[in-house]
């Protein structure tokens, strides 16, 4: 009690030895509300999902629920559509993240120069990221990719002929829309990375006669590495769970040609009412995500803890 009333007079060591347990609790207690909340709302459902996945349960047939063990998983393993959705998810995620990062780096390099109206151009460029995803998908489906009065057809029609983009290239069309939305995000991260770069090194290299491209490859890219990693990991977190674009633009079709895993599971759960099977798919996706996430998080962790120690 005395230590509490006059803490500043007591040396640090005394407090630590007084009651380490109490101190460590006062440190950890503020963490608990958030931790408990996140566990209850986001983790408990996953455990329940595992239980559901062991049952056969169709929502439209009351009383149909029964324990079936691993039968749902056997079904998932032999589901060709599930495999298509898996491949689509990988293609969509990798394609979107990689292409928007490449464009993002190029735009960031462009914006790193001084020119008239630079802040206006930056504002124009970040806008796609701010547009509500549902509205963006609607915009691309209706105004851009429409076969009769869409802008894409108007511009590319004379070159490649009349194309019904959303049914000829459904996955690529969705990807174009998502790249449009995610490029600004990548650009902002990389631009901030560029602007944090020490200018003297670059100038010295420039003085030394190194070509701009050589400077970019030898100095700029290594510096940008952790920003690029951060953008890739954060982008992938969101893109791998993408639902809105597919729901709005193609409904996963034609067939399952543009169905990704989130959309497929949604279809099975909310349109097919098959709880057991969609739960089993959810668990499979969950396991895969944990595997990939562990690797990805390690990646940004090394670059970030490294950064903090250096700072």
């Amino acid at each position: 009690m005395t230590a509490v009333t006059a803490p500043s007079a007591v040396p640090v060591g005394t407090i630590r030895s007084r009651s380490t347990r109490q101190v460590s609790w006062s440190r950890r207690a503020p963490l608990l509300p958030a931790l408990v909340f996140v566990v209850v709302v986001t983790q408990v459902p996953f455990v329940v999902t595992i239980w559901y996945s062991l049952n056969s349960w169709n929502l439209v047939r009351p009383g149909s629920r029964q324990f079936v063990g691993l039968a749902n998983y056997v079904h998932v393993a032999t589901d060709v559509q599930f495999r298509t959705a898996l491949v689509n998810t990988v293609v969509l995620t990798a394609g979107t993240v990689i292409i928007s990062m490449v464009i993002g780096v190029a735009l960031a390099v462009l914006l790193d120069r001084k020119f008239l109206g630079r802040s206006v151009v930056r504002t124009l460029l970040i806008t796609p990221f701010l547009v509500m995803p549902v509205a963006a998908a609607l915009l691309w489906k209706t105004a851009m990719f429409d076969p009769t009065f869409g802008i894409v057809d108007y511009v590319l029609g004379p070159l490649v002929g009349h194309v019904v983009w959303l049914s000829r290239f459904p996955l690529a069309s969705v990807m174009v829309e998502m790249i449009w939305q995610w490029t600004p995000f990548m650009m902002l991260l990389v631009l901030a990375g560029l602007q944090s770069m020490p200018t003297d090194v670059v100038e010295a290299a420039g003085v030394d006669g190194a070509r701009p491209f050589a400077i970019f490859r030898e100095l700029t890219l290594p510096h940008l590495r952790r920003y690029i990693e951060l953008g890739v990991v954060l982008g992938a977190i969101y893109v791998v769970n993408e639902f809105d674009s597919i729901y709005m633009m193609t409904q996963g079709g034609p067939g399952v040609s543009s169905t990704n895993l989130p959309y497929y599971i949604y279809e099975r759960a909310f349109l097919g009412f098959d709880v057991g099977q969609s739960a089993a798919m959810g668990v499979v996706v969950l396991a895969g995500t944990i595997l990939v996430a562990t690797i990805a998080l390690r990646l940004i962790f090394t670059s970030f803890t490294g950064r903090e120690e250096a700072a």
Binding site: N241, G282, V283, T289
Partner: peptide
């Protein structure tokens, strides 16, 4: 927790 597919939690 942010990386986990939210679609797997929506049914519960």
């Amino acid at each position: 927790t942010k990386m986990l597919p939210i679609v797997a939690a929506i049914i519960p």
